[in-house]
């Protein structure tokens, strides 16, 4: 990044075509990427017009009738938009808070334990779930919390409790999702914080130790405050994506189980479902646009904040 800012174009001023001719092969090398972005990223942006149409699959994008804001009116008139917007935000806030705390705690504990075989082994183990697809995780979840054969219910029954029918009890799902998120991601998330802790100057710790600080004191007075910047930055960046639900997770785990929608249905699953059930494409596109627009302004705002906070962290 810095390098580019310093480097000055060495050649004389040329027009657009001169530049293309001079670096023709370099522009050819990036052509596949550009074509890809045009077809799969920019053309769908044009496709947003569907949000303002009464989309008819046979007539297609160019033949369907324009209906103005009708799709949006229909979506915002019902109560569902509030529900899915709330769920998206609520679940993401839960994930960000619990995930950050879990990762930071793990990172601190691992770095405090130093480097030995025990720590290495445990670290390898706790990163592992991150690589497993949510489809497999959903299969595991069934094994654990399935209604009559699940592992958890067997234990509950053994201690004389009443088995819980998890897949029809929507109120426990935010908790279940948070637990799965931590199980899957906390160990992996800790890596960034560990890198930050390792980067802290050792002289600070040595000085504290000479002054007679205990280990808990060095953790709370040195490590935690030093991690503050990293935590704020990473939190900011995830807040930028707060309007996008964790589709892969929620759809694989909950799927089309409407009994759980009241707490788990997020914008992404809502749109996906309406595509699959061939509901109104126009309305789904309208919901998608609502999400993209708010998401866009959130990311822009958050990136601006992050840039102010730590200039190196933003790509642009």
């Amino acid at each position: 990044m810095k390098k580019e800012a310093v480097a000055v174009a060495p050649h004389k001023k040329q027009g657009f075509f001169g530049e293309i001719r001079q670096n023709f092969w370099l522009y050819m090398l990036i052509m596949p990427c550009i074509l890809f972005a045009i077809v799969f990223k920019y053309i769908p942006m044009v496709g947003i017009v569907i949000a303002f149409q009464d989309y008819n699959p046979i007539k297609g994008m160019f033949g369907s009738e324009f209906v103005g804001l009708e799709n949006f009116k229909y979506f915002f008139r019902g109560s569902q938009w509030l529900q899915i917007t709330f769920n998206t935000l609520y679940l993401n806030v839960l994930f960000i808070i619990t995930g950050t705390i879990a990762s930071v705690v793990i990172a601190i504990m691992i770095t405090e334990l130093g480097k030995n075989l025990f720590v290495r082994f445990n670290q390898s183990v706790m990163i592992f779930p991150n690589f497993i697809s949510y489809a497999v995780v959903a299969m595991f979840a069934q094994a654990f919390i399935g209604s009559d054969d699940g592992y958890v219910n067997r234990w509950i029954e053994m201690f004389g409790g009443n088995p819980i029918s998890f897949y029809s009890e929507s109120s426990v799902w935010p908790l279940i999702l948070v637990i799965i998120r931590i199980w899957k991601g906390a160990g992996y998330g800790a890596i960034v914080y560990m890198a930050a802790i390792v980067g802290i100057d050792n002289g600070v710790y040595e000085a504290a130790r000479i002054d007679g600080a205990s280990r808990m004191q060095t953790i709370f007075r040195i490590t935690v405050p030093m991690l503050k910047d990293t935590v704020i930055l990473l939190t900011l960046l995830s807040v930028g994506n707060i309007f996008y639900g964790d589709f892969g997770m929620i759809y694989t785990l909950v799927g089309d189980n409407s009994m759980l929608f009241s707490t788990t249905d997020v914008i992404d699953t809502y749109v996906f479902r309406s595509i699959r059930t061939s509901g109104s494409m126009g309305m789904s596109a309208a919901v998608g646009l609502y999400q993209s627009l708010i998401g866009f302004f959130l990311v822009i705002g958050v990136n601006a904040l992050a840039k102010k906070f730590s200039p190196e962290s933003a790509i642009f």
């Binding site: 077809v39 799969f40 990223k41 053309i43 769908p44 942006m45 044009v46 496709g47 947003i48 569907i50 949000a51 989309y55 699959p57 994008m61 992404d268 749109v271 996906f272 595509i275 494409m281 789904s284 596109a285 998608g288 646009l289 999400q291 993209s292």
Partner: peptide, 10 residues
């Protein structure tokens, strides 16, 4: 991004 629907139709 254009969202899931335009991508799907494309």
């Amino acid at each position: 991004n254009g969202g899931m629907v335009p991508t799907y139709i494309l």
